[in-house]
Design a protein around this nucleic acid. Structure first.
Length: 596
RNA sequence: GCCCACGUAGCUCAGGGGAUAGAGCAAACGUUUCCUAAACGUUAGGUCGCAGGUUCGAUUCCUGCCGUGGGCACCA
């Protein structure tokens, strides 16, 4: 619709007399917006205001000439009006709305999909939590964002691969193994000598200074003790313990993600980057070296990012170039090297879009990785894109909870979902006056998902546990779901009453009917915009408008009990609204209940 | 100190070069003989952090300052 209107505007422009030399009407970018004020029509363009200077004419005069010269399809456009300083306001014809509505119903659960990126592939990397502990609230925001962005990309045509990258090499994994091993010794022999850490925690003497302190470590160790007795004490290194820890923790993470409705197609193990001949990481180093971007110093391997424009500014020395370490003098790579190799791998797999979702703590690190990739893969590095989200601050009893997996001061996603769900079940029980409530579904995931999705990724998210659980029945997710359930209920009632048959959509002339219809027709555009911006919260915000518009329609227009033809038309509109709400909820990864 | 993000109603947040800046919660008052009241309506609430700049037009873009959070290791 907007494309054809833009073409019509350009055609009208071309027909204007006395155009200045060198002015190309075909090159004018005609943009439309939906006015906030319905009296300004259904679509508006400010093209006349923008052309005032190049055409050296008043915007109002341009707008009037365009309005007079534009040719539009009377079946779709009812009026083109000039307003204000020179806006061109376009009003849809009723037939356009009826045709659009029929299209919604025909497409059903595919309505909203567009093919702007058909034949393109994308890989979205998200969660990628190291298997050193349970999934925390911070990981949860990553998981939900990544999963939903992947959904959005699919809806605009991408063939999407959802990947989980495991940092299963390096120091953290060794630390995990040593932590498990220490707890294993303790499990076998309660008299194992202990020490007290800074924060007062009493641990076995062999427990590493910054080991992982959560109870789950002791649980895993106890499992090993039960299964193997003291046979593992003779193990030369901690590999066996690392493995046991990793396996157990991954299984737990998988369960939590499944509960959240988050899935991946592929896993990528960091370890594989060190395997093969040549191993991808060392191959990357060699190739960087060939380009003169490597310098060996103090036994470490440096990446000469200074030659690629990286600078650091200090008060004493001003601005100067800065290099970064790829491999420490210990022989152990920093995160940068495997990350470079990993992204090269993703590009080599041929993806058109390589999207990473990660927390604000990575904000300063990815440019180094991209520099490395660009040095070796050239402009293909442009396909790499990053969605950075700010951390979730958890507030409990008015106090911020500082989260650290290692120190075991964290709230897990499961805890959070359990807590939310428990409160909801309790409320449902009260509402049912002591009887068992009808619904027993786990509401935790929907509430938590929506909470994470309703805000822009880049904003700090304060999650007040007390408030979130206390006010959880006010959570806007229920507003959307309730509207969906309400429509489903109406459809059941209408069915019983025998409402149906081929609807005559031209009967939908009520203000509330038209307002709702216009909103529903925006859905594909809203999805596409949210997807292009990698911004799920836009869809979440917009869906609320749909629910509100439906509630207004519900208030003003009855279905069951009205004349047959009108009832059938309204039922069709209600069904279209349920289609949009249902599809929107599906993209956000939320359930769309038929009753509540 | 340097880098990044954010600063919009009492609170939590949308919006974004354009016409009168929005929503939810909280506050006050209403709506149920009728398809789900988890709903709907009305009222009240604003110097869009501050100061410059660009522009026909800035809350939106740019610069500086202030505030908040995060990052600035041969940690990831």
């Amino acid at each position: 619709m907007e494309d054809s209107l833009a073409a019509a505007v350009r055609a009208a422009l071309a027909g204007l007399p006395d155009l200045p030399d060198g002015f190309d009407p075909a090159a004018v970018d005609v943009e439309f917006q939906t006015p906030n004020d319905p009296s300004h029509g259904d679509l508006a363009t400010n093209v006349a205001l923008q052309l005032a200077r190049p055409l050296r004419r008043s915007p109002r005069a341009i707008a009037e000439a365009l309005a007079a010269g534009i040719e539009t399809d009377p079946a779709r456009v009812a009026a083109v009006e000039v307003a204000g300083p020179g806006f061109l306001n376009i009003r849809f014809a009723d037939a356009h709305l009826a045709a659009g509505l029929a299209d919604v119903l025909a497409q059903g659960d595919r309505y909203g999909r567009t093919d702007g990126h058909a034949d393109e592939t994308a890989i979205v990397e998200y969660v990628s939590a190291n298997p050193t502990g349970p999934l925390t609230v911070g990981h949860g925001r990553n998981a939900v964002l990544g999963d939903t962005i992947a959904n959005l990309l699919e809806w605009i045509g991408y063939d999407v691969t959802r990947e989980y990258y495991f940092n299963d090499a390096g120091r953290q994994m060794r630390m995990l193994g040593q932590s498990v091993r220490a707890r294993y010794q303790e499990a076998l022999d309660p008299d194992t000598p202990t020490k007290t850490l800074e924060d007062g925690l009493v641990v076995p003497e062999s427990f590493p200074e910054d080991g992982y302190r959560g109870d789950y470590i002791a649980d895993i160790a106890r499992g090993l003790a039960d299964q193997h007795g003291d046979a593992l004490l003779a193990e030369a290194d901690e590999a066996r313990f690392t493995d046991a820890g990793k396996t157990a923790i991954l299984a737990e993470i998988e369960d939590t993600l499944a509960r959240l409705g988050v899935h991946h197609n592929t896993q990528f193990n960091e370890r594989t980057l060190y395997q093969g001949d040549p191993a991808p990481v060392w191959d990357a180093v060699d190739r960087l070296r060939q380009r003169g971007l490597i310098e060996d110093q103090d036994g470490a391997i440096w990446f000469k990012t200074s030659e690629l424009g990286k600078t650091v500014t200090t008060k004493e020395e001003g601005e100067q170039g800065q290099d970064v370490v790829l491999v420490k003098s210990s022989g152990e790579p920093t995160y940068r090297l495997p990350d470079i190799a990993y992204h090269l791998d993703k590009l080599a797999r041929g993806f058109d879009l390589v999207l990473d979702v990660f927390g604000a703590d990575h904000i300063a690190t990815y440019p180094d990785v991209v520099r490395g990739v660009r040095a070796l893969a050239g402009d293909a590095a442009d396909r790499i894109e990053v969605v950075v989200y700010q951390f979730v601050t958890l507030v409990r009893a008015g106090e911020p909870v500082k989260m650290s997996t290692r120190k075991a001061t964290y709230v897990t996603m499961d805890d959070l979902m359990d807590e939310v769900n428990a409160v909801l079940v309790e409320k449902a029980r009260e509402a049912a006056e002591g009887a068992e409530p009808e619904t027993t579904a786990d509401a935790g995931p929907d509430v938590v998902r929506f909470f994470f999705l309703m805000r822009a990724a880049g904003t700090h998210l304060e999650f007040d546990l007390d408030l979130a659980t206390q006010a959880s029945d006010k959570n806007p997710v229920f507003y959307l779901q309730y509207a969906h359930a309400r429509i489903a209920s109406i459809e059941r009632k209408a069915d019983e009453a025998g409402v149906g048959g081929e609807p005559d959509l031209d009967l939908l002339t009520h203000e509330s009917e038209q307002a709702l219809t216009k909103l529903l027709l925006q859905f594909p555009d809203e999805v596409a915009q949210a997807a292009e911006a990698r911004a799920p919260h836009r869809l979440a915000t917009w869906l609320r408008e749909v629910a509100t518009a439906f509630n207004a329609f519900y208030r003003d227009c009855r279905i069951v009990g009205e004349a047959d033809d009108l009832a059938a038309a309204r039922l069709a509109l209600a069904r279209a609204a349920r289609t949009v709400l249902g599809n929107g909820l599906a993209i956000l990864g939320l359930s769309a209940p038929d009753r509540m």
